[in-house]
Each structure stands twice: as C-alpha cells, then as structure tokens.
C-alpha cells in the first residue's frame, strides 16, 4: 500500500509517496523522493517544505523518521533550516554526484534487466516499457515545467 500526500504551500512540494511495507526504510524513501523532486525540478530552490510534524502527521509516520530524513537532507545541503521560519529547499542544492548516479543507475538497470529476462521479454519490449514509464514521469513534470528549468538549469538528455 502506498501513502501519498500532496502539498500546496507557497509553491508546490509535489507528491511524497511512501510505502511502509517496503524494505527500504521510510526515512530513506522520504529522502530519496525529496532529492528526486529537487533534481527533476518539481521543488524550487528556496521554497518552503512542510515541517517535520506536519509531514509526519500527513503520512502517519513516526516524527523521528521524518526528522531523520530532513537531518540527512540538511547535512547534504539539500534543505536548510531557517531559525524561527521553518525548513526550506537550499538556494543552491548540490547536483547528484556522477559516480554515485552511475552506480545507482547500473544497479537499477541490472534489476530491471533480470526481471525482463525472467519474464522472457525482448530488449525491444523492455526498452519500450522503459520509455513509456520515462514519459509518464515527464508528464508529471510538464505541469511544473517553468519551475523545472529554472530550478535545475540542466537540460534533459
């Protein structure tokens, strides 16, 4: 089961989906998603994010879990805490490190390839399925397109 929360603040935070039954810890799911929203441009630098309490309440998760995700995001320079004001997306968040990105991409690709082979799919089938999913994410992004380019300054390949 997935728990989704949609935020409308001054700007759109986007969806946070967590899957409590996944083996991936919830703090990691939150962390990964904030990073994804940031890299995909759905989260604008400088925009406010919900407080720990608020996000915990919305997702019905332990506040300590949200707090851990936020702490890590702050430590890595993705979020910043302004005393008395709340938590915000950093004005200059780091871009994903190339090495880590490559490794992560390869791991994910490996899994996908294995699943595809297990299912007896051809490379064409698999590539088509991938492009479809890729497009769906782009469709999501299209709604916030003006923010996207402004936020990352990166051109999609």
């Amino acid at each position: 089961m997935t728990v989704s929360v949609y935020y409308i603040y001054n700007t759109v935070m986007g969806w946070i989906d967590i899957e409590p039954s996944s083996a991936s810890p919830i703090w990691k799911q939150i962390e990964d998603q904030v990073r994804l929203r940031l890299h995909s441009g759905q989260l604008q630098p400088g925009s406010p994010v919900p407080s720990v309490r608020e996000l915990a309440r919305q997702l019905t998760v332990n506040p300590a879990t949200v707090s851990k995700a936020y702490r890590r995001l702050v430590d890595h320079g993705f979020l910043e805490v302004r005393r008395g004001e709340g938590t915000f997306v950093s004005l200059s968040p780091p871009s994903p490190p190339d090495v880590a990105r490559e490794r992560e991409l390869e791991t994910a690709a490996n899994q996908y390839a294995a699943t595809g082979r297990t299912l007896g799919a051809t490379l064409t089938d698999a590539t088509e399925a991938l492009s479809r999913c890729w497009g769906e994410i782009d469709g999501h992004q299209a709604e916030t397109e003006p923010l996207a380019s402004a936020a990352t300054g990166r051109q999609p390949k």
Binding site: P20, I26, A56
Partner: peptide, 26 residues
C-alpha cells in the same frame, strides 16, 4: 504521531496492524 511530535515519549504497543507498525515503530 501528534504525541510523539510534541514530547519525548517512549511507547510499547501490542498490535496486529502490521502496516501501522511499519509506519510508527522503531
């Protein structure tokens, strides 16, 4: 969740609701 957010509380709970446990338990 509200109680956990506003105080330093330790909780021991018995339950069969595994989904909720996955969201709340440490």
């Amino acid at each position: 969740v509200e109680a956990l957010a506003s105080s330093r509380l330790t909780i021991l709970l018995t339950s069969h609701d595994t989904l909720a446990i996955e969201s709340l338990a440490t």
